[in-house]
């Protein structure tokens, strides 16, 4: 007698896909919701080790969620309130630096023009300096105008993000159980596993990168303060942020320091010491921090890393560059699982 085989419920699968698609579309279209929610989610992943150690000493879920949210709220707001002054002052000073930069560029350009005329007897017609200066002025002004808005939204996030974080930490498991309930039986096991692996890879990567940025930022800032270089805090912050980008980041972080050094005619400015400092900081990063922290998490070939960064930048700009690597690592895992699945009968 033929058996009637239940091949999984199609309605369940469609319902599940509709839920996943509509939630992601909703989040993607509401950037005001997406940014704090995304940061809260990333922070949840980052604080996982802390959460686990709190549980293991029998601190309850709710209490540990409150504790972590408070620590995050404090450590998020304190540097914003304290650091805003320093960074704003330095950013304002940049405005006075621009004329210096302009003069420097004009002078260099004039000398170049003269040299070309003498050597090759050729008159350079184009004038890129004007355009460059104009672009610089416009973008600096834009940053200065938007600075208050950025600070306001930072403060708004300072309240919203810890709140979201608290609820994700407190009810995370219940949400996960509910989510798993709507996954159809035939894909539940693998979907749950991939979801977990993605969370783990993503969380570990962001955590490692955060630590790396803090280390690089502190080394550069401390070093610049010691050698008496101008804009130590701003340059340290830029170096920390750009360091998140692989390969390209260190150069992007170094460029503003070099420009300031070249433009500044102050005899106290020690260009050589600054260059050595940046080299030392990046060597420490490459030789110690990166192998210990990051490479263990993403086991990807350098070519794949570079390619994923390029693809990421094309799709989502700087954010794309940052998240492209854990995403590529996840994709690798996904392909591995699919491979195991497809070739499972050929063992």
């Amino acid at each position: 007698m033929p058996r009637r085989i239940h091949r999984g419920n199609k309605a369940q699968l469609i319902f599940f896909l509709i839920i996943v698609l509509s939630v992601s579309l909703l989040l993607l279209n509401l950037s005001r919701l997406l940014v704090p929610f995304g940061i809260a989610y990333i922070l949840t992943l980052i604080v996982q080790p802390l959460k686990r150690s709190l549980y293991s000493v029998s601190i309850k879920r709710k209490v540990s969620a409150i504790l972590i949210a408070m620590v995050i709220a404090f450590s998020f707001s304190y540097p914003v309130i304290k650091g805003v002054n320093t960074v704003t002052n330095e950013a304002h000073k940049i405005e006075y630096y621009l004329p210096k930069l302009e003069n420097y560029l004009r002078e260099k350009y004039r000398l170049l023009k003269v040299e070309v005329r003498e050597r090759f007897n050729y008159e350079i017609e184009v004038n890129p300096v004007d355009k460059l200066v104009e672009y610089g002025q416009v973008s600096t002004r834009a940053v200065l105008i938007y600075l208050p808005f950025i600070i306001t939204s930072l403060l708004e996030w300072g309240f919203v993000i810890p709140l979201l974080l608290f609820f994700i930490l407190k009810d995370g498991r219940r949400m996960k159980h509910k989510f798993l309930k709507i996954i159809p039986n035939n894909i539940a096991e693998r979907a749950y596993y991939l979801f977990h692996q993605f969370n783990r890879k993503f969380g570990d990567y962001i955590f490692a990168k955060f630590i790396e940025a803090v280390i690089i930022g502190s080394i550069i800032t401390t070093g610049l303060v010691i050698i008496g270089y101008p804009f130590a805090f701003l340059l340290g912050l830029i170096a920390a942020i750009t360091n998140i980008l692989p390969y390209l980041g260190p150069f992007l972080g170094f460029a503003p320091a070099l420009i300031i050094g070249l433009v500044d005619q102050n005899p106290n400015t020690t260009l050589g010491a600054m260059v050595i400092l940046y080299i030392v900081a990046n060597v420490i990063d490459l030789a110690l921090v990166f192998p210990i922290l990051v490479s263990k998490i993403v086991n990807l070939h350098p070519i794949i890393v570079v390619m994923s960064v390029i693809v990421g930048s094309q799709f989502a700009g700087i954010v794309g560059m940052i998240i492209s690597i854990p995403f590529a690592a996840f994709l690798q895992l996904f392909i591995q699982q699919a491979y195991l699945e497809i070739y499972s009968n050929r063992r």
Binding site: R3, R4, I5, H6, R7, G8, N9, R173, H177, L180, K181, N185, N186, A188, E189, R190, Y192, Y193, Q337, L340, E341, S344, N345, R347
Partner: peptide
Amino acid sequence: SKYLHVREFEANEVVFHRNQAGLS
């Protein structure tokens, strides 16, 4: 019991196949 998931299966529904990657 907090770590357990309840899964409902219909009659003659496959829980898992042979040689499939096992995770539960």
